[in-house]
Write a protein that binds this DNA or RNA. Structure first.
Length: 106
DNA sequence: GTGATGACGCAGT
DNA sequence: GACTGCGCCATCA
């Protein structure tokens, strides 16, 4: 893993997400100019081996659904983490999505 | 070198 | 309004 990839860009971006806030794949892809939201999800697929750990639970799809929860240790872990930060989630979907959505100025 | 896959997004129907 | 298909770019087999 000594080889740095654009993963670091995605990881760094996600780590910049404030506590209690979330971001979307499209936002990350747009902010990092990756060109595809798929790249973000694919990069986060390996975030579990990243150091320091990446708050991947703060990254959701455009609809605010916890689409990536299935990749966590448990399908409820992602929801538990978000709820622990004060984010309301129902049926694996963020309720006040627009309120917790975090978007960088740049 | 080619084909297939992936935690998505958007346009078209 | 809801569903389907295609495209994005990078990595793995």
């Amino acid at each position: 893993m000594t080889k740095k990839s654009y993963f670091d860009d995605v990881y760094d971006f996600v780590r910049e997400v404030p506590h209690g806030r979330v971001t979307t794949y499209g936002t990350v892809a747009n902010a990092l100019a990756l060109g595809s939201a798929r790249m973000v999800g694919w990069a986060l697929n390996q975030c579990f081996g990243a150091e320091p750990p990446v708050p991947a639970h703060r990254v959701v799809n455009r609809k605010g659904e916890l689409s990536g929860r299935i990749h966590f240790s448990t399908p409820t872990l992602m929801q538990e983490l978000l709820e622990s930060e004060g984010i309301i989630i129902e049926d694996n979907v963020i309720q006040n999505f627009e309120e917790v959505l975090w978007i960088p100025d740049w």
